[in-house]
Computed example of a mutant assay.
Amino acid sequence: MKITLIIPTYRRPQDLARCLEAIKAQTRPVDELLIIVRDTDELTQTFLQIYNSEFLPLKVLSVTTPGVIAAMNVGLEAASGDIISFTDDDAAPHPDWLELIECHFVVDENLVGLGGRDWVYLDKQLHPGKLTEKVGQVQWFGRVIGNHHLGTGWLKNVDVIKGVNMSFRRRAIAQLRFDPRMRGSGAQVHFELAFCLALKRKGAKIIYDPTVAVNHYPAQRFDEDQRSDFNQTAYINQVHNETLSSRGDDWLKPLAV
């Protein structure tokens, strides 16, 4: 199967360099690598002009609209792979990441979405936390359980996977795109929730395998959402996006698995 990897990036060239080196080290090479760069991001554009992309099928695409959703949708429009994978510029996939992704989609023809663990590192130390088998669930009353960075055990069916480590069968997602109604000028929290729930409502199979792993080094954001500090605008955007994700708009064409 042909794999397209999409990486949105914004003003984090050092992180992107680490990510690209991890892609070079994959035991199963990527077939198409799409880097999505904001048109105003001269820092990243300069880095990519001098970066040694030898052995990488790298294409740089430009986006004019702020936010990760616009960037990812630009990538989806250009992707030609049978499998479309996503990771963040501040992540470093494990060497067998693409190999395991392809194996899952080859073995299970009904598989639409695949996620895995992101090993979170803060100040070069692995983020502590209790491992759990309860991952990626939306409870009956609407509470979303993430825990993708703490997942353990064997394969499990899930409702949502995490943007730093997610893959989809292109034929199955058809014309579905990330919802541009999501608020935020950068991270646009819960974009994965809306996308995955739209698929689940059509009966899509989405699984989580903790061995399909990336290292995640949460880097600086350049918007109102600063991770550790409360921001009223970011909180309002988060609530809006989560509410929008749970509405269940029927805007997904029938799956063609």
Results as ranks from 00 to 15, higher is better:
35 I>A: 04
35 I>K: 09
36 I>V: 15
37 V>C: 08
37 V>T: 13
37 V>N: 14
38 R>Y: 09
38 R>Q: 15
39 D>N: 05
39 D>H: 06
40 T>N: 07
41 D>T: 09
41 D>Q: 13
42 E>G: 01
42 E>K: 12
42 E>M: 10
42 E>Y: 03
42 E>F: 02
43 L>V: 01
43 L>N: 08
43 L>W: 07
44 T>K: 11
44 T>P: 07
45 Q>C: 08
45 Q>P: 01
45 Q>G: 02
47 F>H: 06
48 L>S: 05
49 Q>H: 01
49 Q>E: 12
49 Q>V: 01
49 Q>R: 02
50 I>C: 10
50 I>Q: 15
51 Y>G: 06
51 Y>Q: 04
51 Y>S: 05
52 N>F: 09
52 N>V: 06
53 S>T: 06
53 S>M: 02
54 E>M: 04
55 F>V: 04
55 F>H: 12
55 F>S: 12
56 L>F: 10
56 L>H: 09
56 L>T: 13
57 P>E: 05
58 L>E: 04
58 L>T: 07
58 L>C: 13
59 K>E: 00
59 K>L: 00
60 V>A: 10
60 V>G: 10
61 L>M: 10
62 S>D: 06
62 S>Y: 01
62 S>P: 02
63 V>A: 15
64 T>M: 07
64 T>Q: 11
64 T>C: 08
65 T>I: 12
67 G>R: 01
67 G>Q: 01
68 V>A: 10
68 V>F: 07
69 I>G: 02
69 I>K: 04
69 I>M: 03
69 I>Q: 00
69 I>N: 04
70 A>Q: 08
70 A>Y: 08
70 A>I: 14
70 A>E: 13
71 A>W: 00
71 A>V: 00
71 A>Q: 05
71 A>F: 02
